[in-house]
Computed example of a mutant assay.
Amino acid sequence: MGGAELDKATELDDATAVARARAGDLDAYEFLVAHYTVPAHRAAVLLGAGAEADDVVQEAMVKAYRQLSSYRGEAGFKAWLLAIVANETRNLHRSRQRRDGLVLRALHHEEPAVAPDPAESAMARERRESLVEQLRRLDGRDREVLVCRYLLDLSEAETAVALGVRKGTVKSRTSRALTRLRSLLAGEEGTDA
């Protein structure tokens, strides 16, 4: 089945696309790439890949293709792919650490000057920036579980697969991470008052 036929298919699901890709249908894998590149990129950025998110996603997509035979379909292709993205992002962090302090530079990058926005847009942007800043202050495990659960809208089961932990671990980490995040946000509000 060619790319045009895949586009015409009304309900090509992930399982069908994976089965076709395993059989050598590159158009089927192209369908999966097109469908999951945006969430994969979003995950990479939110997990700390920053400007290198495109590279992380590209590497994850290549690895996913090479490892299609190991995909079992238990939690869905998206969760499986995001687990690879999370691993690639962790690899990026390790690489950054070896390059003497690039993690700090990436976490404390300066925002470019932007023309003034209307008041509502500015307030919304400040809230988003504050939330992202406080998320970045959390340790890696806390940040990863919150990003998966609330920013990527993964279920507990999908988050467990993406992070390579048990579902119960996801529940407990989420609870602790939310408590820490609330504390950080409350401390920030106290300093602004």
Rank of each mutant, 00 (worst) to 15 (best):
V161C: 04
N91I: 07
E88G: 02
R166V: 06
I84R: 03
L181F: 02
K167C: 04
A60D: 11
G164P: 03
R128D: 14
V103H: 07
E129V: 00
E189R: 14
S69I: 15
G190I: 00
A19T: 06
D139M: 02
A157P: 03
D14R: 01
A193L: 10
A157N: 05
A75E: 02
R173L: 13
R141N: 08
V38H: 07
R72M: 04
L138E: 03
R180F: 00
L46M: 11
K167E: 15
T169W: 01
A43K: 04
D13S: 08
A160R: 02
G187Y: 09
D27G: 09
R94H: 11
A115P: 11
P116D: 09
R72T: 14
F31T: 09
A106I: 03
D14V: 07
Q97K: 11
D153M: 06
K8T: 12
R105C: 10
T16M: 08
R99N: 15
E74K: 14
V56R: 03
L151K: 04
Y29C: 08
L68I: 15
L151T: 05
A160N: 05
G190Q: 15
Y36A: 01
M61A: 14
R90T: 10
L135M: 06
G48C: 02
A9Y: 12
M61Q: 13
S172G: 00
Y71N: 15
R99L: 14
E133L: 01
A21T: 04
R96F: 09
K171M: 06
M123W: 14
A49E: 04
V132F: 06
K167R: 15
L151F: 08
H35D: 12
L82K: 01
V62N: 06
T159S: 06
L135N: 01
A9F: 12
V165M: 06
S121F: 00
K63S: 14
A34L: 13
A17N: 05
A83S: 11
K167W: 09
A53K: 08
D27L: 03
E133W: 05
R42I: 09
A124H: 14
V85M: 03
A160V: 09
L6R: 14
G187V: 00
A40Q: 05
H109E: 13
L154G: 02
D153P: 05
L47R: 04
T169Q: 04
V18A: 01
G73V: 05
D100Q: 14
